[in-house]
């Protein structure tokens, strides 16, 4: 996603990314970034909370209109839950990120990529 934003921006189209994985996006280096400290899956607000979703988008509109240089992160004020413990559980044995069929599909997709690469198709 970050690479696509960078490419559009380098070719004259202003962009803004909405995301939750702050370190990954900032490590890549993107022109404008609206960060909400939520679990993976809801970068534009909580499900069915239209008011929050609007506020997050509005933050991005404001950034598009007012940024004067690249590499700006704006953090929205929203918190996922009063208890922050979900952050400590991400990617742990207690909460395996992928398992069962999901893990199998992911492995298959990676293998498909490796095979196509070997065959010179990608």
């Amino acid at each position: 996603m970050s690479l696509v934003a960078r490419h559009l921006e380098a070719n004259g189209i202003p962009t803004v990314i909405f995301g939750v994985a702050r370190d990954i996006v900032e490590y890549a280096g993107v022109p404008r970034f609206v960060f909400t400290d939520f679990p993976l899956g809801n970068p534009c607000g909580k499900p069915f909370d239209a008011a929050m979703q609007r506020a997050i988008l509005e933050t991005g509109f404001d950034l598009l209109e007012h940024a004067t240089g690249p590499g700006v992160t704006v953090t929205t004020p929203f918190v996922w839950s009063e208890d922050d413990s979900w952050k400590k559980k991400v990617f742990t044995k207690e909460r395996p990120f992928m398992e069962g069929e999901v893990l199998e599909r992911w492995e298959k997709a990676k293998e498909r990529y490796r095979r196509q690469k070997r065959e010179g198709n990608v």
Partner: peptide, 22 residues
């Protein structure tokens, strides 16, 4: 997509990650 935090949330509202309605 299957690479989200399924313990904490869901993808039942497309506007939470692809804000077409908003």
């Amino acid at each position: 997509n299957e690479f989200y935090d399924r313990y904490e949330t869901n993808l039942n509202d497309v506007n939470a990650y692809c804000p077409v309605t908003r």
